[in-house]
């Protein structure tokens, strides 16, 4: 177990290094940031001085080495466009994105799982057929279309929910939260629905097909023969056996929620990291782009690690047989 964790940690570190390398080198060739930073009237001398200050004249390996060492200390350099430390900019924007992602993930889970269980158990009822059909739409409609539709309905037509921004936020240390104000919650509703819809339908369909599979197994049949209640069978025995694949997908999807939030944040003008990234792309603001990509990769890798560890908690068969091999009797 311990050696497994260490092995996984090393793997994770390697993945992060590769990601850092890719994102760093990708953006290095994405365009000359100096052009965007200085005005038309800047002299050749100004430009050279700026290049020197940003370390753009150093050889590539040196620049990358500096990037990694700084990144490990949580430093990602100075934004070309905003002339402020990238880590500060990200720290400012992170709460908005994480709160949006959190609410979306919770929404997707607490709706997707019960709906999936329902559709798996009542496979032939018209409700589950309807849900399946609707969910197909959820899977196939692009996020921005959903967002715009919701804005049109609730903000333009009904005038009940705001179409942009976070509402009022409360500052707790460096964290700004929208959870403590009414307008904060109001502002969260449309973006989080938009962001969660795809995951919700995915989770629902996944849980449904896993449930169908599990309901056919002998141990469910035997659980029925033992007279267990439907609740115990459906949610105790069946659902638990669907959890391993569900956790895999959900884990991966929390990562993609963060990635997808770029679109949602753009549609709703949500002041998160995604929006920061989009602006950075427009200005070839390499430090921000590199930091953002590294961060997203970091989230992916950590979640993956967490998912693997969760398997152990759920499935006793994975706790490799130390005492067992000896204890096996026939």
């Amino acid at each position: 177990m311990v050696s497994y964790v260490i092995r996984r940690l090393l793997q994770a570190a390697l993945v992060m290094l590769v990601v850092a390398f890719v994102s760093f080198s990708l953006f290095r060739f994405a365009g000359d940031p100096v052009n965007n930073m200085v005005g038309q009237e800047a002299t050749q001398e100004d430009r050279r001085e700026l290049r020197e200050r940003l370390g753009l004249n150093d050889p590539f390996p040196v620049q990358f080495g500096r990037f990694v060492v700084d990144a490990l200390q949580g430093e990602f350099g100075i934004s070309y466009r905003l002339q402020r430390p990238v880590e500060d900019l990200i720290a400012e924007r992170m709460p908005a994105t994480l709160e949006l992602v959190l609410v979306s993930a919770v929404l997707a889970l607490i709706t997707g799982i019960p709906l999936g269980v329902y559709c798996g158990i009542h496979r032939d009822s018209w409700v589950s057929r309807a849900l399946l059909t609707v969910s197909l739409i959820g899977v196939s409609l692009p996020t921005f279309v959903i967002g715009i539709l919701l804005i049109y309905l609730f903000s333009v037509q009904m005038l009940v929910l705001p179409s942009f921004g976070r509402g009022e936020v409360v500052q707790i240390g460096w964290w700004s939260t929208g959870f403590l104000t009414f307008s904060g919650w109001q502002a969260l509703i449309l973006p989080s629905i938009t962001l969660s819809l795809f995951q919700l339908t995915l989770i629902m369909r996944l849980v449904r097909s896993e449930m169908l599979e599990v309901m056919r197994t002998d141990y469910i049949k035997f659980a029925r023969a033992r007279g267990l209640s439907n609740r115990a069978i459906n949610f105790g025995h069946a659902l638990k056996n669907t959890l391993v694949p569900v956790i895999t997908i959900v884990g991966l999807n929390i990562g993609s929620l963060i990635a997808f939030s770029i679109i949602t944040e753009t549609v709703f003008n949500w002041p998160g990291m995604g929006l920061l990234f989009i602006k950075a792309v427009q200005f070839a603001d390499v430090p921000i782009m590199a930091a953002y990509l590294t961060m997203v990769a970091f989230v992916f890798v950590s979640i993956n690690l967490l998912v693997d560890l969760l398997y152990y908690a759920i499935d006793p068969r994975l706790k490799v047989d130390r005492g067992t091999a000896a204890g096996r009797l026939s």
């Binding site: 141990y219 049949k221 035997f222 638990k240 759920i314 499935d315 006793p316």
Partner: peptide, 9 residues
């Protein structure tokens, strides 16, 4: 082999 739920003791 398949009558018992693998995830519960």
């Amino acid at each position: 082999l398949t009558s018992l739920n693998p995830l519960y003791s």
